[in-house]
Amino acid sequence: MRTDVTFPSSGLALAGILFTPDEPGPHPLPAIVVSHPGGGVKEQSPTTYGERLARAGFAVLAFDAARQGASEGEPRGEEDPFQRAEDVRAAVSHLTTRPEIDPERIGALGICASGGYVPYAAQTDRRIKAVATVSAADFGRVIREGVDGTQPPEVLDAVLARAGELRTAEARGEPPHREPWVPDEWRDSAHRQDRETWEFYRTARGAHPRAGGTRLPRDLDRIALYDSFALIRLLAPRPLLMIAGSAADTAHLSREAVAAATGPAELRTVDSATHVDLYDRDEHVTTAVAELTRFFTAHLAAAG
Rank of each mutant, 00 (worst) to 15 (best):
A265R: 07
P176D: 08
L234E: 14
R218E: 04
S228N: 06
G173D: 10
V131R: 15
A273D: 15
R218M: 01
H252A: 12
I223N: 02
D148Y: 00
E185R: 14
D184W: 15
V270A: 12
L220P: 02
T150H: 09
D227P: 01
R210S: 10
E196C: 00
A130T: 02
A251P: 01
A204F: 09
D249V: 03
T262K: 12
D138G: 13
A244K: 02
H177N: 07
A163L: 06
V147I: 14
R215L: 11
I223P: 05
A211N: 07
I232W: 09
R192N: 08
T262V: 09
P176C: 06
D148C: 09
L267N: 03
A260T: 01
E179G: 09
T214A: 12
L241N: 03
L231G: 06
D194C: 00
R144L: 12
G149V: 05
I143W: 10
T250A: 13
W181A: 06
A251N: 04
G140K: 05
I232V: 14
R215A: 05
D188P: 00
T133W: 07
T168C: 04
A261K: 11
E170H: 09
A224K: 04
A259F: 04
A130V: 00
L234D: 14
A204T: 06
V270E: 15
T262P: 01
T133R: 07
W198P: 05
T269P: 02
P239V: 00
R192T: 11
S246P: 01
G164Q: 11
T168M: 07
L166Y: 02
A244V: 06
P217M: 03
V270K: 10
M242C: 10
R192L: 07
G263N: 09
L253N: 02
P237Q: 11
W181R: 02
R222W: 10
E154H: 12
H208N: 14
V155C: 02
T269H: 01
L225S: 05
V159T: 14
P180T: 03
F200M: 10
E266P: 04
D157H: 14
D188L: 01
P239N: 11
V258N: 08
Y201M: 11
L241W: 04
L216I: 13
G173R: 03
A136L: 14
D221H: 13
T168Y: 10
E174D: 15
D188K: 07
L160F: 11
A259W: 02
S272Q: 14
R202E: 09
S246L: 06
